[in-house]
Simulated assay, not measured.
Amino acid sequence: MGEGRLFESIGRALGLPPEAVARFGVDGPAEAAVLVETALRASGFRTDVTLYIDASRARALTSVEVATRVAPLLGEEVLVSPPADDPAVATSWFLITPGGERFRAREASPGNDSDCVEIDRASLRPG
């Protein structure tokens, strides 16, 4: 997935123009409404995305709502932490499909690869 496509999808999901979304970094534009930090992974869910949103300039959405809007725009499954008040926040994730389905999932045992998030697909259940 290209960075431009990711940024455009995030902007569309939040109702913002493309120039309102920028890469997070020391040299990045401080005036952007959304700053995006990415980390690439070797396997499993390949791109880890963190958003820093200026709530005064973008819609107030939960991370699950953003993921639900971004998944169909990217045509990709999106993995997101449950809300902080969810009692399972430390042990499970929400897997959002491009079709809008939401499943609660558990992380598979990563083995020796601690820089990998694999989902135990057998654990999927409607979220």
Rank of each mutant, 00 (worst) to 15 (best):
M1Q: 06
M1G: 14
G2I: 00
G2H: 09
G2T: 13
E3H: 08
R5K: 14
E8L: 12
E8S: 15
S9C: 11
I10H: 03
I10A: 07
A13I: 01
G15E: 04
G15F: 09
P17I: 09
P17Y: 03
A22Y: 01
A22F: 00
R23W: 05
R23S: 13
G25T: 06
V26N: 09
V26T: 15
V26Q: 12
G28T: 02
G28F: 01
P29I: 05
A30W: 02
E31R: 06
A32R: 02
V34A: 11
V34W: 02
L35P: 00
A39I: 01
A39S: 13
L40A: 15
R41G: 08
S43G: 10
S43V: 04
G44W: 04
G44M: 04
F45D: 05
T47H: 06
V49G: 10
T50M: 03
T50V: 07
A55V: 11
S56R: 09
A58I: 05
A60D: 11
E65A: 15
V66L: 04
A67W: 01
T68G: 10
T68V: 03
R69K: 14
R69P: 05
R69M: 09
R69V: 07
V70C: 12
G75I: 03
G75W: 01
V78H: 07
V78N: 05
V80I: 09
V80T: 14
S81Y: 02
S81V: 03
S81A: 14
P82I: 10
A84I: 06
P87N: 14
A88K: 06
A88C: 07
A90F: 04
A90E: 12
T91L: 08
T91F: 04
L95V: 15
P98S: 14
G99K: 06
G99E: 13
G99L: 08
G100W: 01
G100E: 05
E101Q: 14
F103E: 08
A105I: 02
E107L: 09
E107K: 14
P110T: 13
P110L: 09
N112C: 13
N112H: 07
D113S: 14
D115T: 12
V117Q: 02
V117G: 07
E118P: 00
E118R: 15
I119P: 05
A122W: 00
S123E: 07
S123A: 06
S123N: 05
